[in-house]
């Protein structure tokens, strides 16, 4: 089943267990110039592949920090298949950076040659599973390494789904040997929007497959689908919400201390604000570890 074990083990040895920060273009020059304290950085490769100057700076960053590559352009759920030209570009960046992790989303974004610049939802049924398994296998073979699949932020689902999202992810892990990136904020947001229990969702994920956690901010707005209600939007434009920190602590208790990323993609604040969020994630992780030790001893 899993033929990515050796690669994954090597990466895991180099991957800091502490909190990293999403590296956006607006902070790139500052990071190169000042080398701020940060455990690791995660990048969206699509921001660098068509920007040679940024790619040059990224190579400098990679000499001093572990890098994780988090793609938004590999559309593993598109029925039309993987964009092989993009996969080849991604492979060359991955080869150049030798990142500690490579991840992407359980979503789709391409249709008949158009790239829709969003992470669109999938029905969770056997047809989708076959499509995603085939594409994920192609991606892992194309990149020559294990890929981490992130749970989506959901606003709608499909009545035709025959399994839950967590069941779908478990089956993906079983059939492809992929790992999981558990975006704790997405779990909370999707659970609120779709009406399920976020803690039970965390419980349903396979413990040994989760190798990274994400935390990001969301905003709320009136729900067009439910007058009087509200819907949470995955904007990554504010700090992490209180209930998500609680869910994060719960996820750490279940999955153990995992590399955790602070994501902030819109209304991007000074780098120090991101660093402060990463410090808070560290504090939550340390507190959770202490609790675990106290319980054990």
């Amino acid at each position: 089943m899993s033929h990515w074990g050796a690669t994954a083990d090597a990466s895991a040895r180099r991957t800091p267990r502490s909190a990293g920060v999403g590296l956006r273009l607006s902070h790139l020059a500052e990071v190169v110039a000042t080398r701020p304290p940060a455990a690791w950085f995660e990048i969206h490769p699509e921001n660098f592949l068509a920007n040679p100057h940024a790619g040059e700076l990224l190579q400098e960053v990679a000499q001093h920090y572990p890098i994780s590559v988090h793609t938004v352009g590999i559309s593993i759920g598109s029925v039309e298949g993987i964009d092989r030209a993009h996969l080849a570009r991604l492979r060359s960046l991955v080869d150049a950076l030798d990142p500690v992790l490579v991840s992407g989303h359980l979503a789709w974004s391409t249709h008949e040659g158009a790239y829709l610049n969003d992470l669109l939802p999938l029905p969770f049924d056997d047809e989708t599973l076959a499509v995603v398994v085939a594409h994920l296998t192609e991606v892992q073979e194309g990149l020559g390494r294990r890929y981490l699949v992130e749970n989506p932020s959901s606003y709608v689902g499909f009545g035709s789904s025959t399994m839950t999202e967590a069941e779908f992810l478990c089956e993906l892990v079983r059939r492809t040997g992929c790992s999981l990136l558990c975006d704790v904020s997405n779990v909370y947001l999707s659970a609120r929007n779709m009406g399920y229990d976020p803690y039970r969702y965390i419980d349903a994920l396979p413990i040994d497959a989760v190798h990274e956690l994400h935390l990001g901010g969301f905003t709320s707005e009136p729900d067009e689908a439910t007058p009087g209600g509200e819907v949470l939007i995955d904007t990554h434009s504010v700090g992490v919400a209180g209930p998500v920190w609680e869910l994060y602590a719960y996820a750490l208790r279940r999955f153990g201390r995992q590399p955790t990323l602070i994501e902030w993609d819109n209304d991007i604040p000074p780098f120090a604000t991101l660093a402060a969020e990463a410090t808070r994630a560290e504090e939550v992780a340390s507190m959770t570890q202490k609790e675990a030790r106290a319980l054990a001893g």
Partner: peptide, 30 residues
């Protein structure tokens, strides 16, 4: 489904998706 969603996302017209969506009382709104 993906053809219908592409049309909805680029044009704003979600009628092709009919009643297949769930989420809130009127999922198409989302």
């Amino acid at each position: 489904l993906q053809a219908g969603m592409r049309h909805a996302v680029t044009s704003g017209d979600a009628t092709a998706l009919g009643t297949v969506l769930v989420g809130g009382r009127r999922a198409q709104g989302r």
